[in-house]
Every structure is written in C-alpha cells, then in structure tokens.
Write a protein that binds this DNA or RNA. Structure first.
Length: 428
RNA sequence: GUGGCCUUAGCUCAACCGGCAGAGCAGCGGACUGUGGAUCCGCAGGUUACGGGUUCGACCCCCGUAGGCCACCCCA
C-alpha cells in the first residue's frame, strides 16, 4: 500500500479522464467565443469576506463548505479557496472598473472550485466548472441567450436527456411579500412538519419548497407559488424570458419550486438536470440573475446573470453512456532498432523526424527487435522505422505495419517519405 | 455535518463453518539472438486499507482510524 494518497474528495485525473475534461473545456471555450464571452482567470482564493458577502453568510456553501485557509500571522486576512466563480468575477469587475467597458461585460472562467463537504460520486472537494457571466444588461434576452448557451454545451458534449428547469424567484419588490405569505402558510401547518423542515422554516423557508420528504409533497403542492406573487416588473421579465426561449427553440420546463442555494439570485433562476440519472448527479449545472450582487460587493448598482456548469458531472454522465473521449492519437511511426543496446541511433533518427514536425515515438527500451515491433503494433503506429547495419550506408528500413511491406530508404529522404505517406493515409 | 454499506495483487474478482491467500486481465521475460497485434510457457506482483482485540489459529468475529460508495443536508 502506498503511504500517500490524494486528499479526501480529490482525485487524480488519469490521461483518459484528463483528455475528456480537456475536450469539455474545449467545447466550453468554443461556445463562449461564439456567444461573445471572453475568457479570464481569477485567483483560486479570495478574502473570505468576498464569499461571505457575495454568496451569503447563512448559505450552506459559506457556513459549512468553505475551504478556509489557515492564517500565517495574526494580522493576516482570512482567505478561502473559491467555492464558485461568480463572486470572484464580480469582485474583479468592480476592482477593474468594468462598468466603464461597453456593457454588458461578458466573461467566462474555466477551472477548479473547492468545497469542503462530504464526498460522493460526482461530488468532490475539488471539482471543475465552466462559469459564464453577463454583467450590465438587465433585459430578458440575455437571460435566454445564456440559458441557450448552457443547453447547447450539453448537446455538443453529447449528454443525453438534459432538461432545462426554469423559474423566477422575484426581486426586492415582491419576494419579501411572498416570503411572508409562504412562512405564514407553513406556520399554519407547523404541526404537520417533520423536525428538519420545521427548522428550515426559520432558517430559509424557500427551501421547504424543494423538500424531498414524501410527507411534504401535499403541503408543498398546496403552498403559495412565487409565480402567482411576482410583481408586475418581475412577471413581465419572466414572460419575456420564456418568449425568447420559445422563439429560439430551447426546450424548458417551468419548475415553480426551483429555488437555488445562493443568496444573490433575483428573478430568473435555472438548472440543467439530467433525466433518469440515479442519485445526486442529476443537477448538472445552474445559474440565475443577480441584480444586486455588484452593489453588494462595492460596485455601482449593476444587473448581471450567470451560470456554473459542473464538468465532473458531465464526465460522469458520459462515462455511463460510454461516450468518453478517444485515446491518444497513434504515432505516425515508431523508431525501432535491431541492436537493443543502441539507443543512440534510435533517438537520433527520432529527433531528426520530430524536428520535421512528425509525430514519432522512439522505442528506447533495450529489448529485442520483435518486442519493439510488438509494442509498435499495439500502439497502432502506421510505420516502423527499423534501424540496423544499413545505417552505416545511410539507409533505414521503412516498414508499413498495416500492409506488412518494407523497403530501404535513404535517411535523408525518410522525413519526406513519411510526410507523404501520412498525407495519403489521411486522404484515405 | 447525520445515518448506513463496503475495502483481498496495478485492474476485475475468488478463497466452504475461523484452518497453507488464488485466478483472469495488464506488466516483464522465453519459445522467436534483424521483423509485429495470435498461441504456448514462465517470472514478478500481498503486512488481505491501517491500528488494536478475541482465538491454538483471523481475509473471515469485535473495536477504532482512513478511504470509497449510498441515502440525507446541500449542491456542481
């Protein structure tokens, strides 16, 4: 047993998985580019206050999942690893005066996030997200555009059965009234509530709506709906978002009980959800509008909307459907040697070919020729360059591993021969 | 953070009621000393996750720890 292992909730992404993640990041970057989002980088950690104020002090993410760093000195500020990207991006937006940029400012971040909670499949302490934010546009069209971009990501990544869940949770004008109404409703039925739900009633009554307790189903169904309580402006915004989605053909379902865990959301909230998935990996990503967040982090009042898509969960979904990324492309040629000990000759020839831009693997293990060819075949190389005594006359054997044929080629023409062969291979 | 299940070779898994820790795959080598994906043979790989306890004797029973998974909490 090795004495060291990856920390709990983290894992090594071995080449197959790593290239799968890379592929997803490539799709994300391509989409971001097509939709006009510019990629940026933000620190992996921030002052704890950025998250506390931005995400909300009483959210689970801040209360129990924040990865807090031990201070180095008494005077040091409190730092924490980023549990999500939105707060950091908005902090950067304010810090760099992006309110003077052409609005909206559309930004994207791809990278690892950190949350200190109990790990499970598809749920890690270090996980990868694609995050996109459009800051500075209050209109419903940008909401729909963003929801479409996320939906398209799953389509292009090849995740089956993704559903868009949509809701509006109102704003400062109408939500307080709704919350009062909702709280009053559940208070009237407090005696029927399970213990856990009773505690939620005080902490975060909205959460009662997506309770998984079967005993709650009837109560929740009869509870007042936020959709019926939206103020005129919020209702109009919601209707417009839906009209835009329908116009561009993004399928969605209004989910009146969809509330999200972070404090900063206003109006539009949405979630990408995988139908038929077992367990906790159904939520693939989510987002929403946060019209008060920029102000909360010290900027001028500026509306914004964003999403965060969990790449690990996509990887998991693709793994289940056996649609993972293909293995590494095979080398054009493998350089092998008749003399197992002469690695210098092999490395020299490989170096020569690589300098010409060719994809060539050098078999450097000191094994006999048969074994070298065996691994070359297993790697699905098109050619083997066999180096033997002919090298003294400036020649090598070029063997076509698929056809089984071989011929003598002058070393000086080898690169050209291989390049031409590669071309004809690719053309069929 | 709460409750439950699990952990045997790099991987997938065996091992009767508590009685000598095994196989397939992968790796390496040989058959085949300058010619490959097949086949056959061999080699290596283990403190049975870790630490304690019970027992003549523990992979097996008990306790603890770590890790994984499942259901919650919650989220990606």
């Amino acid at each position: 047993m090795p004495s060291f292992r990856a920390p709990r909730g983290t894992r090594d992404l071995l080449p197959d998985v790593s290239s799968g993640l890379n592929r997803l990041e490539g799709i994300a970057r391509s989409l971001a580019g097509r939709y006009g989002y510019r990629e940026m980088e933000i620190p992996m950690f921030e002052q704890t206050a950025v998250f506390e104020r931005g995400i909300g002090e009483v959210t689970d993410v801040v209360e129990k999942e924040l990865f807090r760093l031990a201070p180095r000195t008494e005077e040091a500020e409190a730092w924490a690893l980023r549990p999500e990207a939105t707060a950091g991006i908005v902090r950067a937006f304010v810090q760099h005066g992006m309110q003077t940029w052409p609005q909206p400012v559309k930004l994207t971040v791809v990278g690892p996030m950190f949350r200190y909670d109990r790990p499970q499949a598809g749920r890690y302490r270090q996980f990868w997200q694609w995050d996109a934010e459009a800051i500075g546009d209050p209109g419903p069209a940008v909401d729909a555009e963003m929801i479409e971009m996320g939906y398209r990501f799953y389509v292009e990544a090849g995740v089956p059965d993704v559903q868009v869940l949509l809701n509006s949770i109102g704003d400062g004008a109408c939500r307080p009234a709704y919350l009062a109404q909702l709280t009053a409703y559940f208070r009237r039925h407090e005696a029927e509530l399970p213990e856990l739900e009773r505690r939620r009633l005080d902490a975060n009554p909205l959460r009662l709506l997506d309770s998984k307790d079967a005993a709650m189903a009837a109560l929740v169904a009869a509870a007042p709906r936020i959709g019926d309580c939206l103020c005129e402006a919020c209702a109009a915004h919601f209707a417009a978002v839906r009209a835009h989605l329908e116009a561009i053909g993004v399928p969605y379902r209004v989910e009146p009980t969809l509330v999200r865990g972070l404090d900063y959301y206003t109006r539009t909230t949405f979630e990408y959800y995988r139908r038929g998935a077992e367990g906790q990996q159904q939520a693939l990503g989510g987002g929403g509008r946060y019209d008060g967040l920029v102000e909360l982090l010290g900027g001028r009042p500026t509306p914004g909307i964003g999403f965060a898509l969990g790449l690990d969960r996509v990887l998991l979904a693709l793994d289940e459907t056996r649609a993972m990324a293909a293995a590494m492309a095979p080398p054009l040629a493998v350089v092998v040697g008749a003399d197992p000990a002469d690695t210098i000759a092999r490395l020299r020839v490989a170096s020569l070919l690589r300098a010409e831009g060719l994809c060539v693997r050098a078999e450097l293990a000191q094994r006999k020729l048969g074994r070298q060819l065996e691994t070359a075949s297993r790697d699905h190389a098109h050619f083997a360059v066999i180096i033997g005594d002919e090298l003294n006359e400036g020649h090598v054997q070029l063997k076509d591993l698929e056809a089984g044929t071989q011929r003598l080629v002058p070393l000086g023409e080898l690169a050209r021969e291989l390049a031409r062969a590669a071309k004809s291979h690719h053309h069929g």
